[in-house]
Amino acid sequence: MKRFFLRLVVFLIPVGLFVVFLELCVRQMPSDYQQKRDQLLENADSIQVLILGSSGEMDGVDPNQISLYAHNLAFGSQTIYYDRRLTEKYAPSLKNLKYVLIDFNYSSLASEHAPERDFFYHYYYGIDYEGRKFCKESLLQSLFVYPSKYLLLQIYRQLRSPATTTGQKGWQGGWPDVMSESEMELKEKANDYYRIEVHLIEEHKESVLKDLESLLLFLKSRNIVPVLLTPPNYSGFRQYLTDEKPFLSHDSISDQLTQKYRITHLNYFSDDSFEKTDFHNYNHLNREGAAKLTRKIDDFIRTCEDPFSETK
């Protein structure tokens, strides 16, 4: 028996060392969540525009293109649940905050939160998803937080060229490439869009709307202007979205909210001024597209700031 336990321990030593190595790497890897938080706190007095939302805003709204000082606090798959809590937590320290851009995509109401990202909000922002505990994740991030393939790839990249990922104002630089999806892929994505996203609206509508309305009320009470934002989708993709029902239902919610809270909804979903070369994929803008979208948003902000000025 002793021989077995001894050999087992010897066998497990390299496994243990590997886990320790992964853990050390994970703890030293720069994180977007951490960098965006640090930049937010550093520039708290300057920030006038806060950009919330998911990947559409994270890589689609460039704060450098906005004439006021803007900060991008959007993350991939970020739902309104976190938009609300991040704002409630940090808005009081952003003394000059005037505008908050809130993602109101057609899939926003359907968004199931991504549980694999909950830990980041707990760890970097102290926000727990509905009281969820993160004991094992805090102990071993390498095993319980990151998908293994992703983690190994990140470690490999980090070892080859250590670099920070986030630039100034929470802007990660946007996607440099142009979309390359074929017609068939777009058709398939459109089917997915109905199957996975839009049809989930009813299921999540109530809780999402509750969070959204709380966020709007919070911002209104502080004289901050909330702006609902729907980024553009590629026209070649939109042509396959033939069932209008979910969209009409969504638009009616948008109308109700804009009337009730007297807010603006910048809806670029079907904006045909965005061309194929502006997209990274069917529903995400690339760097060029992000600059274009942000200029449109900036026009709106400038109009709000000075209603009598001429905008482009």
């Binding site: 066998f11 390299p14 496994v15 293994s148 393939k149 190994l152």
Partner: peptide
């Protein structure tokens, strides 16, 4: 043999 077992464990970790 041990290297083979480590390989299997690594695959289990990577492909989970």
């Amino acid at each position: 043999r041990w290297i083979f077992y480590y390989f299997l464990i690594l695959m289990v970790y990577v492909y989970q």
